[in-house]
Amino acid sequence: MVQARDLRKRFGAFEAVRGIDVDVAQGEVFGFLGPNGAGKSSTMRMIACVSPRTSGSLQVLGMDPDRDGPRIRARLGVVPQLDNLDTELSVRENLEIYGRYFGLPRRHVRAKAAELLEFARLTERAEDRVEPLSGGMKRRLTIARSLVNDPDLLLLDEPTTGLDPQARHLLWERLYQLKREGVTQIITTHYMDEAEQLCDRLVVMDGGVIVAEGSPAELIERWSTREVLELRFAPADRPGAADLERHAERVEMLPDRALLYTADGERSQAALHSAGLRPLSALVRRSTLEDVFLRLTGRTLVD
């Protein structure tokens, strides 16, 4: 569906994307992970054919965006980072007008709008203006709108940023449903749980390059340990990283806690105890993508 080789994007003196290779297969949910400014959105915009590449090769749906932009966009669904709904129109009008931009016949668009209202659970608000809707409803409408042309490839740029947990879970459920219907999806996010939930395969970007690639499980196995021991100390007896490193494969010192990467969290905890270290609290958990992210990008999430 998407094939990029040495893809680059430069804005003046700043190179946002510095030579990446990406392959997205049919039916796959593919994720771009990375801190703000990593080049995710620039990459997405090149794939969406709304930003010409500076160099490298890019094929989307087997076509070249530089030559076939409109033809590619006709088969894409795009959920932008910031909603761009027409807030002075009704929910239904937004869907119908958007369908018309694809040159779809009015009758088809009317039927499609009704179907998508059901899908997004907005049927009861169909005739209301968009303006007063909640953030979650607007987001659902934006996603419904992106499906109006039955896209072969759906691009979602931070689809759940700013939503409450209920709204996020409803959106995830809808996206999962689309996945089962075989819609290929590319998602950018900086929510690790979202990437873990939704993505079959993902790349971690940092500073315009890809620093890791694989399924969430592969990435965790490759870049993190099986378990993590999270410790909180009273400021007075907070030990140095060196004291902790003896009891783990790797230690990440965060402002509020210390993360000990270890195969067996219980054992590390016991070892700390016998070494006389007394944390205020200790928690053993499994590694998550967030740990991979911390390791690879060397910092906590920049928001």
Binding site: A74, I97, G103, L104
Partner: peptide, 28 residues
Amino acid sequence: RAPARATPAAAPRWVHGVLLVVESFWRW
């Protein structure tokens, strides 16, 4: 979701595209 795909999505012709934008403003 009924996979109703009446028309394969294709880019509208050039002038048609202009008129679709006009139509959208008219609806507004």
